[in-house]
Computed example of a mutant assay.
Amino acid sequence: MPENRDTAALPLLVVDGANVVGSVPDGWWRDRRGAAERLRDRLVAYAESGLPGRSGPMDVVLVVEGAARGVEPVPGVRVESAPGSGDDRVVELVEGAGDRPVLVVTADRELRRRVTERGAEVTGPRALRA
């Protein structure tokens, strides 16, 4: 994604990193930070092209917590290291999105409830594997 693009005008895609990484039993627990970095790198494509059924470009934010804190952003993907609960940080991002459309990627039922109450749409982790 071009660095000079105004991402504040784009639809916001917020990814619950711990939930998405944890949805695939591929040994992620041995290297949580590495798993979050691999997810971040896969998200770059969605910044420009969007998700199936949702055209791009999108402002993509990966929320990480715990051992994955400190993962660096890359062009096209911002990374938010939650100081506490990753779910709480996802909710804060939704609340701060203003009037633009927000899509949250998570399978966490409680987080889904919290963000939809605030006007976000939700999809599951499989949307990132299509």
Rank of each mutant, 00 (worst) to 15 (best):
G84R: 09
V77W: 11
E117D: 15
G98V: 13
A120H: 00
P75F: 02
D99A: 14
E121H: 11
E80S: 02
R42A: 14
V94D: 14
V60K: 06
V104L: 11
A35K: 04
L62T: 01
P83N: 12
L103T: 15
G76A: 08
V102R: 01
A97N: 10
G66H: 07
R32C: 11
P101R: 15
V79L: 10
W29T: 06
L43S: 05
A35P: 02
P52K: 03
A107R: 04
L43E: 03
E37R: 15
D41Y: 12
R118P: 11
A107D: 10
R30M: 09
G98E: 13
R38K: 12
R114T: 00
G66D: 08
A36W: 00
W29Q: 13
G96S: 04
E110K: 03
R69H: 00
P83A: 11
D87Y: 13
R38Q: 12
E92Y: 00
L51Q: 04
T106P: 13
L103W: 15
G70Y: 07
T106I: 06
D26S: 00
E37K: 06
L62E: 03
A45L: 12
A45Q: 15
A120V: 00
R30Y: 09
D26Q: 01
S81Y: 05
L93M: 14
G84N: 07
R38A: 10
S85Q: 09
G84K: 09
S81Q: 07
R100E: 01
P83Q: 12
G50Q: 11
T106E: 12
R109D: 15
E72G: 10
V71P: 05
D87W: 04
W28C: 05
R54H: 14
E65L: 12
T116P: 01
D108H: 08
S49D: 10
P101Y: 13
D108N: 05
V94G: 08
E37G: 07
E37I: 11
G27W: 03
